[in-house]
Amino acid sequence: MVLTRRAALGMTGLAGLAAMAGCATPGGEAADASGTRTVEHPLGTAEIPVRPQRVIALDAGAGLQTSLEAGAPLIAAETLAGETAISDYLPKPPGGFQPLGFNEIDLERLTALAPDLIIGSRSRVEELYPQLTKIAPTVAYLNTADRVRWRDTALTVADLLGARPELERRLAEFDAAAKDFAEQHTESLKQRSVALVRFTADEVRILTGVIFPSDLLAQLGVRRPASNEPKEADATYISLTRETVPVLADADTILYFSGGGGFAQESGELFAEVTEGPLWRRLPAVKAGRAHQVNALNWWDGYSTSAAHACLTELAGLL
């Protein structure tokens, strides 16, 4: 059985989010004599190995990327569509690793792989959760679709893999790099406001809130213009049409990219129409040469300290 569907990005927050986020983090659970431990998560309770040996990640974001950063025994994972299945900034998968494709769950294939742990974002595994639990212990976690910061999700995944110390080390290393970056670019960050824009297949979106690239800019102390402030406090994007693109006129700098999430080709027509059109060309940031197209693999598909470092490197050359 194969199910194909798009990840539910931009979903409304879940009731009791903070409580569930805590439940999804199994740190501190005591292992029993059989080498397993009980963890609670947004979809139920699971008895998982203390040291899993055959992990499948049904998520090309935190599941795949944190597993690779942690050096987990990852036997298979969902990957990106298009030319780049796994971004180059990530550690290489272990030998024998099998890519499962983008947004596909093939139950027969998963069964044949004989995992001892399946992990995935709530939005990815919820529909087939009962079937997945018959294959192996399955744990769901919350992510930015549920208004949870990327780094908190990464820590949850690391906990499930028994690799929290390694992830904490990587986060501390990135935090130090981010602090150095902010200090080195203090004047630029103070003087210029930055708009963050993504082109999808049917609209232009200003990214905001806890979504990975917006959260990263916030950590760096980047000033966002008024047009980037959402009406709803927990919103992760603001929709624009071709006609409302001029609201970006209050941005000193615009960082923008096309697609991401495996859908890069789908946004091509709209992207070309807007960026080659008169309304875009009249924007002050565009006229001043401060509208920069950035790499969607870093800024959208990224969900890890490796991606965050890649964004820093790219941003350093643009300020």
Rank of each mutant, 00 (worst) to 15 (best):
I206Y: 08
A172P: 00
T12W: 07
E314C: 07
A145Y: 05
P52S: 10
W299M: 03
I56V: 15
E83R: 12
A31Y: 03
P42A: 11
L248S: 11
P284C: 02
L270I: 10
D32N: 15
K92Q: 10
L110V: 06
R164W: 02
E127S: 14
D215A: 15
G221C: 10
R124C: 08
W150Y: 08
T45G: 13
L217P: 03
V197S: 09
A112P: 04
L196I: 11
G27A: 15
E203V: 08
P42Y: 06
E83V: 09
S67W: 01
A285K: 02
R109N: 12
G63N: 04
A158K: 00
G277K: 13
E273H: 10
I48Q: 02
L171P: 00
L14Q: 05
D215M: 11
L17C: 09
L217D: 02
A112L: 14
V274G: 03
Y89C: 04
F271E: 02
E108R: 14
L240Y: 05
A316S: 15
A272V: 05
L161F: 02
L161M: 03
P93G: 10
G95E: 14
H185M: 14
I119L: 13
R54W: 05
G101H: 12
V247C: 03
D215H: 12
N143P: 01
D180I: 11
P225R: 12
R122Q: 10
V274P: 01
E83W: 03
T200L: 09
G268Y: 07
I86G: 00
A235L: 06
A33C: 10
L74W: 00
T236E: 08
H292A: 04
A46G: 11
A158P: 00
G289V: 01
L297A: 04
T133H: 05
D234P: 07
D59Y: 02
V210I: 14
I118Y: 01
S258H: 09
Y256I: 09
A201I: 08
S87A: 15
P278S: 14
V245T: 05
L43S: 06
E47H: 11
F257Q: 03
L128H: 08
D202H: 13
V286M: 05
P165N: 04
K179Y: 06
A195N: 09
A60F: 12
L155C: 03
Y256C: 12
P99R: 09
L283W: 01
A15M: 12
E29I: 12
G259Y: 02
T275P: 02
F97D: 07
D152P: 00
A251P: 04
T241Q: 11
P230L: 09
E127P: 05
A285M: 04
L155I: 03
A77Q: 02
S227R: 08
E127N: 13
I105T: 11
N298K: 03
P137G: 07
E40Q: 12
S87Q: 13
S239W: 09
S123F: 13
A251C: 07
L17Y: 04
A308W: 00
D301N: 13
K179S: 13
G10W: 08
A31C: 10
R169L: 10
V204I: 15
C23Y: 09
R198T: 06
L9I: 12
A21D: 08
P73H: 02
W280K: 05
